[in-house]
Design a binder for these strands. Structure first.
Length: 360
RNA sequence: GGGGAGGUGGCAGAGCGGUCAAUCGCAGCAGGCUGUAAACCUGCCGCCUUCGGGCUACGGAGGUUCGAACCCUCCCCUCCCCA
């Protein structure tokens, strides 16, 4: 899933996404609640109509903001109180309100409110957090079912909405298992693994994924939240994951880092100033078919908006293409080869993740 | 012709006797970004370096001083105002 936090995948239009073959996008409860407001979206006919995207939308619950906006929120049993990053005003997000807001938004998949645990965290802290997430899950699910039962409720703009539960438990396998059991007991349409890709070493992330994914129902999509790099996708599918979302392809594109069949490429670098070749000769995206590295580097340095657009088109193409290759490899039983290939292409990431985070 | 302001590292612009190789910004170079407070952030940015430091520097030449980008003298050069 391409990430479109505020109802738009940054730098590209829905038409671009259609052409790229994007089947679903992600939007965010917290951001849309603050602006333009869930009530307003509902009055405007729901998120699909409002943003002009008729294909599926998944809304994250705001659980990630519990992590990423840690400095501007406090969490208690009731929920998370945020100081708005827009105007400083206080807002309480509860499991119930997260469900209600998403009902008003009318997304196709709503995520239950969870507490995305920071890394590192002690076993005690992780257990307490997961148990709270479980209690929140019960409350969020009850609210979801309550709204859905009413059916004609004016708050409800998408009667077909599904709700996914989220597994927490930090980097502790026993806690992950406990979280899975509790979450399955509550029962959701499908399940996500949360609380990873928050700074833990990549091997640990793979490890937890490997131990957690098989515990989730095989007949439902398993969603690994917030992951990842291209090699992370391949490695995670190999461990049982079906669905991802990540800001990397879009954010890094805007910041000049491109994912290619030869690894990461920083289009800002001086070495591309007069390089007439495309970003990736093996790529068939619009950007690669039409523009040189030299031009793309120029656009970036000149601060042209087109830079973000063209780079984003390329990176999203690379990501969606990676997923297509993975599906194909599964069909032809060549996933292991694909894995080796991606490990080769992105060695720093798979061999020693710490190199990625700290060049020294 | 008269009056005034000023010349500082690629640009722009602080500093106005020691703690200045010299604030800040821009440009440049490199790196990071994993359920987006991110078209953002970090580091480097005179030369050399065994990273401790060494060397050359604030238009030019002299001078004062223990010590000068900062004070004095002369020279060169810009810009502004009035005629």
């Amino acid at each position: 899933m391409a990430v479109g936090t505020q109802g738009a995948v940054k730098a590209v239009t829905h038409r671009h996404l259609d052409e790229l073959g994007a089947e679903i996008i992600l939007a965010n409860t917290y951001h849309l609640y603050l602006r333009p407001g869930a009530e307003r979206v509902r009055r405007l006919g729901g998120l699909h109509k409002f943003i002009g995207w008729s294909k599926p939308i998944l809304t994250d619950s705001g659980g990630y903001q519990v992590f990423s906006l840690a400095s501007r929120r406090k969490v208690d049993e009731q929920g998370a109180t945020f100081r708005s990053h827009l105007d400083g005003s206080e807002h309480l997000l509860t499991p119930e309100s997260a469900s209600s807001i998403q009902a008003q938004l009318g997304s196709d998949i709503a995520m239950v409110l969870d507490e995305c645990l920071e890394y590192p965290a002690t076993h005690d802290r992780a257990r307490a957090s997961l148990e709270r997430t479980l209690r929140w899950a019960r409350r969020g699910r009850d609210q979801f079912l309550h709204i859905q039962k009413k059916g004609s409720d004016p708050f409800f703009t998408n009667p077909g909405q599904a709700q996914f539960g989220i597994i927490q438990g930090g980097t502790f396998p026993d806690l992950r298992r406990q979280s899975v059991e509790g979450t399955l007991e509550i029962g959701f349409e499908a399940y996500a693994i949360g609380g990873l890709s928050v700074g833990e070493p990549i091997p640990e992330m793979y490890d937890i994924t490997e131990q957690t994914a098989p515990l989730l129902p095989a007949d439902r999509p398993r969603y690994l939240m917030g992951v990842g790099t291209p090699v992370d996708l391949v490695e995670s599918v190999a461990r049982g994951i079906d669905l991802f979302d990540c800001v990397l392809p879009t954010r890094n594109a805007r910041n000049g880092q491109l994912f290619t069949s030869a690894g990461r490429l920083n289009i800002k670098n001086a070495e591309y100033a007069e390089d007439e070749s495309p970003i990736d000769a093996e790529c068939g995206c619009y950007t690669c078919r039409h523009f040189s590295r030299a031009y793309l580097r120029h656009l970036f340095h000149a601060g042209e908006m087109t830079s973000g657009t063209l780079n984003t088109l390329h990176n999203l193409h690379f990501y969606l293409d990676t997923m297509r290759r993975i599906r194909e490899a599964i069909v032809f039983s060549t996933l292991e080869e694909l894995r080796q290939k991606y490990r080769r292409i992105f060695p720093a990431v798979s061999a020693d993740p710490t190199l990625e985070r700290d060049p020294k």
